[in-house]
Design a protein around this nucleic acid. Structure first.
Length: 338
DNA sequence: AAGGCGGACAACCGCCTAGAT
DNA sequence: CATCTAGGCGGTTGTCCGCCT
């Protein structure tokens, strides 16, 4: 790789005097590992590293393979659907990254972890609250996740809008129907080159034609993902913590429908407001009265203009301009009731 | 144009667990 | 049953890149 990150690899002396390399992987090392696994399969990483002639620890080889070299690893922007999945799964499982990753085909735990830390935690920080606080979790659950659903719906029905472009959906995406099969092109945005090559188990790997001079690679092809993440086929948080099997996927919509009114205004976002709103009689979330007492400092965020840092409306941004407007609207509404 | 700063992410570290001996 | 080892997992670090001043 050597795309970005660490400087050139270094070597260290291990206990048995064997030179062990550390730091970024070189193109040669990558191909050595890929070739070896193609011919011998993966597993037994320590001996694999030895037999392949790699001066790396088994752990390092395993990590490199699983997080980067594996042919089915999916790279590129986290889609809206994936964001929704991550938020929802994290809300129930916490930092169980590998478990969460199991439900996001092609995504690695490392990638999800990085996404969480760089995007979600950043916004928690902007809100001046702990990412694990009830306040933040409620905001996720009752404001942002429904908002994401809304954006997904919008993307599905109006694929030429800016939001839809960010989702990169080809084919059908039917939120609210039995299943949602989404065919997403592989968006190896920072690894793209013009020399696609597929790697199959047991197949000799070509010379580094698929790598550019930075060691960047592209396995080409398309990634098929089927989130199965729809209101109808979902359960609520009432299910047991480990029951998140494929047929039983939680949707924040179904989670929320028990608590939300039918829309009462022209603002579609208010579909997601808790029962009683905007009458002000019961501004309580199912898990407490956050809406009365736990307001976050959205105004401060607006003042600092940190909401809209980066691309304002891309799929890897949790909150875009519309969201900002939406949250601000809710803030104003709530303030008027207090 | 240059320097500072934060985002992004690959890679490493340490702990834990399960299976083998 | 105790010990060892490999693999898995979550947390953390290091460094490049791009934006901003």
């Amino acid at each position: 790789m050597d795309v970005k990150g660490r400087a050139r690899g270094t070597t260290v002396q291990s206990e048995d005097e064997m030179d062990l390399r550390r730091g970024p992987w070189t193109v040669d090392e990558d191909f050595t590992l890929i070739n070896y696994i193609a011919n011998h399969g993966e597993g037994r990483w320590n001996s694999l590293a030895r037999c392949a002639g790699l001066k790396r620890t088994g752990k390092s080889c395993r990590l490199r393979w699983l997080n980067y070299l594996r042919p089915d690893v999916r790279r590129g922007n986290i889609t809206l659907e994936e964001q929704l999945m991550i938020l929802d799964l994290h809300s129930r499982w916490g930092n169980r990254w590998s478990k969460i990753a199991q439900h996001l085909p092609g995504r690695t735990d490392n990638e999800i972890k990085n996404y969480w830390r760089t995007r979600v935690q950043k916004h928690a920080k902007q809100l001046k609250c702990d990412v694990n606080s009830k306040q933040f979790k409620d905001t996720m659950r009752y404001l942002w996740m429904p908002r994401l659903v809304e954006r997904i719906q919008a993307a599905a029905t109006a694929p030429t809008t800016s939001t839809a472009q960010a989702v990169a959906i080809n084919g059908t995406s039917s939120i609210g129907s039995a299943t949602s099969s989404i065919t997403s092109t592989n968006t190896n945005h920072h690894l793209i080159n013009n020399n696609n090559h597929d790697i199959h188990a047991g197949q000799m790997v070509l010379p580094p034609a698929g790598f550019n001079n930075l060691g960047q690679r592209d396995f080409g092809g398309t990634a098929q993902i089927t989130p199965s993440y729809t209101p109808e086929n979902s359960s609520t948080g009432a299910s047991s913590s480990d029951s998140y099997g494929a047929p039983q996927i939680i949707s924040p919509v179904s989670d929320l429908t028990d608590y939300y009114n039918i829309p009462v205004s022209n603002n579609p976002s208010q579909d997601y407001f808790p029962v009683g709103y905007p009458d002000g009689q019961s501004l309580t979330s199912p898990s407490g009265n956050y809406f009365n007492t736990g307001l976050m400092d959205l105004q401060a965020m607006e003042q600092s203009n940190q909401w809209m840092d980066g691309a304002p409306d891309t799929s890897d941004n949790l909150w875009n301009v519309e969201d900002m407007w939406f949250l601000q609207q809710q803030l104003n509404n709530m303030n008027s009731l207090i």
